[in-house]
């Protein structure tokens, strides 16, 4: 049985909710493991994700048909290569509108493509409302709330972003210290490069903090991937035809 192709849509209707940090970490999680991964940056202004991961990030303008073709014609290909889409705040509504118009939600399961929305939560009413709307609009997508401790700052938002299924358990991104942020938020800092060869000028406590942060985040990604694979497996067992007895399954010799 072939594995489904996971398409991670990192989204929020609000800016500065930690979307790009999440998209970077997820893309580099696959890269660290040596697995193929694709990344798409829909931010036409800064293109921050593309600045960090220029060699394998495609920039696409969702307002332009050519950009839509570059993005969705790749996302719909079931090649078992995970893809991460960083949907900037200004692209949020146009992106989901295009998904509806081109029938992506209907076609994805037919092509063994599994869309997962990683919703970067915030303590504002707009985010909670957008999350509820996505649940209604895309019931077939896995909708996972992501709490970034540096953004949420102690607010309990679980009631505003209820988990939609056992597969979509929330992710929690720990806060990075301001000193560490000042390092990792400057392109072309790369998490996988850091793990391979920590920068000589990075002091030990900071290196230890970042390693700990990456371990906690990557562990959650690994668990999320396992939950998705189990869910896909359960789904395929449900839809498989009942096994035939051997003598009925084979034509007589």
């Amino acid at each position: 049985m072939s594995r489904p192709t996971h398409v991670y849509i990192v989204a929020s209707p609000r800016p500065r909710t930690g979307k790009t940090l999440l998209a970077r970490a997820l893309t580099e999680f696959y890269r660290t493991d040596g697995r193929p991964v694709g990344a798409f940056d829909l931010d036409t202004f800064d293109g921050t994700l593309a600045q960090f991961l220029p060699s394998f990030t495609v920039r696409a303008d969702i307002a332009d048909t050519r950009g839509q073709v570059a993005l969705f014609d790749d996302l719909i290909v079931a090649n078992e290569k995970p893809k991460v889409v960083d949907v900037s705040a200004h692209a949020f509504e146009p992106f989901f509108k295009v998904i509806e118009q081109i029938g992506f939600a209907t076609e994805a399961p037919l092509q063994s493509v599994d869309p997962v929305i990683l919703f970067a939560t915030g303590a504002d009413a707009q985010s909670a409302k957008a999350y509820a709307r996505l649940r209604e609009r895309f019931p077939g997508f896995t909708l996972t709330p992501v709490y970034n401790d540096g953004i949420v700052r102690g607010h309990n938002l679980r009631d505003d972003f209820p988990a939609t299924s056992a597969t979509a358990l929330p992710l929690r991104i720990p806060a990075l210290s301001p000193t560490l942020r000042a390092i990792v938020d400057v392109p072309p800092f790369s998490f996988s490069e850091f793990r391979r060869r920590p920068p000589a000028d990075m002091r030990e406590p900071l290196g230890g903090e970042l390693n700990s942060w990456l371990r906690r985040v990557y562990l959650q990604f690994r668990e999320m991937e396992l939950r998705l694979l189990l869910s896909n497996l359960r789904g395929s067992l449900k839809t498989s035809p009942p096994e035939q007895p051997l003598d009925e399954a084979r034509p007589p010799a």
Binding site: T65, Q68, V69, L71, F72, D73, I76, V98, Q101, I102, G103, F104, E107
Partner: peptide, 11 residues
């Protein structure tokens, strides 16, 4: 043909 363009035509 492009999946996106086919989607637009279907819609």
């Amino acid at each position: 043909y492009s999946f996106v363009l086919r989607g637009y035509v279907r819609h």
